Amino acid sequence: MRKSTKLFFCASGIFISYFFYGIAQEKITRGKFSIDGTTDKFTFSTSLVALQCLANLLIARVGVQLAGKTSSETPSHWYFMLSLTYIGAMTASNKALIFINYPEQVLGKACKPIPVMILGALIGGKRYSLTKYLSVLLIVFGIVVFMLYKTQRSEHTFKANFGIGELLLLISLASDGITGAIQDKMRARANVGGYEMMYHTNFYSTILLLIMVSFGDGLEFISFCSRHPSLYWYVLGFCITSAIGQSFIFECISAFGPLTCALITTTRKFFTILFSVIIFSNKLVTQQWIGVLLVFAGLFADAFFGKKKTPILK
């Protein structure tokens, strides 16, 4: 398969899978589950991520069997470190939804190329063009504009929750950056396939998360689902779309690197925001839409000018 065709294939798979993934995620984490006049709120992020990793592991295992090749050059401790940063990123971003709405979380995660670039340069020894750095600065400015104008909420709620959701997003983004740097090292030093990387990452992640859940909110999560049976379908859809989407992500990382993958996953977030606004009536003020446009102007500037030869910042 030609590289351009494979890139389009991976991008399409990521866009479609994570569109439905986003709907299921918001239904679970932001939905209202009522019984006997009492409304329950979903707060079991660790259990949800554990099921997600288990589904990813099963799909990855099938992919490894079909690929029929493995790399013996990859040290196990790399996968273990990868699983730790992956758990940190996923758990923090899911918990952030308790304090901020979905468009805010999505656009916050649109910063992902920034830590991937910075930590890729510091840890992985990567070098990027001046155009790419300028594009990323435009993205940062758009994020700042968006965050300065919060989605409409009461003053009391704003004061109670301000900073917690953003702090969780920073933890998630830092974890994403370290994950990208480790993946760059793995690509540079070992011939690692996408499904192989996905399998081993989720293998360690699943073990760690199941241990955490058994001593944490596992029983409460089961009890919550028993009280609200409709949640089973959303969780099932969440896990399936995650597993399919992640298989495309790891194939993209294996072939093109974590930064290219981060840019693809970030562009799809614009459409996620639009559909979230339409479907879930999350209202954005004018200044926030300006921030959104600035973010994606930076992304498209990188896509258009990034292929041209520009000076490398050392």
Rank of each mutant, 00 (worst) to 15 (best):
R2G: 13
R2K: 15
R2H: 13
K3L: 14
K3Y: 13
S4L: 10
T5R: 01
T5G: 05
T5S: 12
K6I: 12
F9S: 09
F9P: 00
F9M: 13
C10N: 03
C10E: 04
C10M: 03
A11H: 00
A11C: 06
A11G: 03
A11S: 15
S12A: 15
S12T: 15
G13Q: 05
I14L: 13
F15M: 14
F15P: 00
I16D: 04
I16S: 08
S17F: 14
Y18G: 03
F20P: 04
F20D: 03
F20T: 10
Y21F: 15
Y21K: 00
Y21H: 05
G22Q: 11
G22D: 05
I23E: 04
I23T: 06
I23D: 02
I23H: 01
I23M: 03
I23L: 12
E26I: 10
E26V: 14
K27S: 06
I28Y: 02
I28C: 09
I28V: 14
T29G: 00
T29Q: 03
T29M: 10
R30K: 14
G31Y: 09
G31Q: 11
F33N: 07
S34M: 09
S34K: 07
S34V: 14
S34I: 05
D36Q: 14
D36A: 14
D36R: 10
G37C: 11
T38H: 10
T38R: 10
T39M: 13
K41V: 08
K41E: 15
K41Y: 13
K41W: 09
F42I: 13
F42M: 08
T43K: 10
T43C: 08
F44D: 02
F44K: 00
S45F: 04
T46W: 03
T46G: 10
T46Q: 02
S47I: 04
V49G: 02
V49F: 05
A50N: 02
A50M: 08
L51P: 02
Q52V: 04
Q52H: 07
Q52D: 09
Q52E: 11
Q52M: 11
Q52P: 03
C53N: 09
C53E: 08
L54K: 02
L54W: 12
A55T: 00
A55E: 00
N56E: 04
L57I: 11
L57M: 07
L57H: 00
L58Y: 08
L58N: 01
L58G: 10
L58D: 04
L58W: 06
L58C: 07
I59Q: 01
A60M: 03
R61E: 03
R61S: 01
R61T: 01
R61N: 06
R61Q: 01
V62N: 11
V62C: 05
G63H: 01
G63V: 04
V64A: 10
Q65W: 15
Q65T: 12
L66Y: 13
L66E: 11
L66K: 13
L66T: 12
A67R: 11
A67P: 01
A67T: 11
G68S: 05
G68I: 07
G68L: 10
K69C: 07
T70W: 12
T70E: 12
T70I: 06
S71L: 07
S71K: 06
S71V: 06
S71M: 11
S71Q: 11
T74A: 14
T74C: 13
